[in-house]
């Protein structure tokens, strides 16, 4: 299950999408998500899908890889869907069982909300799949840099994110190892109700917690040994520079917005 999470996993490549400036990619991703939330009808979502498909095509990532990233999300999706169906007020009743009425508005709302979630996750996945976490944190650091003047710890936050991202696979691997070790000693992670299963996680989480402290200590030592001294006077292997590519990407995004707005006015 833990291996299904594509969010935050980098898929190395050399496509135009990979080569874009991460700051631009980050901002355009935010724009895309805003766009997706503006859409209010099905053809609009087809546009959003077409745009995403195009970006994925250019980036060289397999679309199925992106879809796999949705798997861990299925419960949230179902949950959102049911909540929206149940709690949206509507007039046009499609069918009614007892006091439950399925209205056309509720169904539409539920579908749109689920679709928004799907596009939100897929859109951000494209960002994280084509941008190495280091570039991503670089971008965040740059974008947050103006705030540093007001005492905002931009570099420190970026560093923490890099380290967190770096250790996700390591800790997952370790959790897996501990789980197997505990299972070999008769621990049961699978049966019982939710409470019992949550309690069964304790012998997994405690060793994991202890070892992450040891790792943190080691890492701090290693970073110090490699001359780490905070963000000042630090250079970067990859200097961020906007190129023509970013300009084209921006044009594409503007075109996307024009399309969804036009579509919304025509069919809305």
């Amino acid at each position: 299950m833990l291996n299904d999470i594509t969010l935050g996993q980098y898929y190395p490549g050399n496509s135009p999408v990979h080569r874009m400036d991460p700051r631009c990619k980050l901002l355009l991703t935010v724009a895309y998500i805003v766009g997706v939330f503006l859409i209010g009808n099905l053809p609009g979502y087809l546009l959003a899908l077409a745009f995403l498909w195009l970006v994925v095509r250019v980036s060289g990532i397999r679309f199925s890889y992106l879809l796999r990233g949705l798997k861990p999300l299925r419960f949230i999706l179902v949950f959102t869907f049911i909540l929206n169906v149940a709690f949206t007020q509507g007039q046009t009743v499609l069918f009614a069982v007892g006091f439950f009425r399925l209205t056309r508005e509720a169904l539409e709302n539920a579908i749109y909300f689920s679709l928004r979630l799907v596009f939100l996750v897929m859109g951000t996945s494209v960002l994280t799949l084509t941008t190495s976490p280091v570039q991503l944190t670089d971008a965040l650091e740059h974008l947050m840099h103006p705030l540093a003047r007001f005492g905002f710890p931009a570099h420190e936050l970026a560093m923490m994110m890099t380290i967190a991202l770096r250790f996700i696979p390591t800790l997952l691997e370790e959790a897996d190892k501990i789980q197997k070790a505990q299972m070999a000693r008769g621990a049961d992670f699978e049966s019982g109700n939710l409470m019992a299963r949550a309690r069964a996680m304790i012998p997994l989480l405690v060793p994991l917690f202890v070892s992450s402290f040891r790792r943190a200590n080691d890492l701090a030592m290693a970073m110090e040994a490699r001359c780490y001294r905070g963000g000042e006077h630090r250079t970067r292997l990859r200097e961020l520079r906007y190129t023509r590519l970013d300009f084209y990407a921006l044009l594409c995004m503007i075109a996307f917005f024009v399309l969804i707005i036009a579509e919304g006015m025509l069919l809305g």
Binding site: T162, R166, R214, R215, D218, L219, A222, A225, R226
Partner: peptide, 13 residues
Amino acid sequence: VFQNPDNQIVATV
């Protein structure tokens, strides 16, 4: 160079 290979690599690439 330290003992634990996992605990001294800082970056993700």
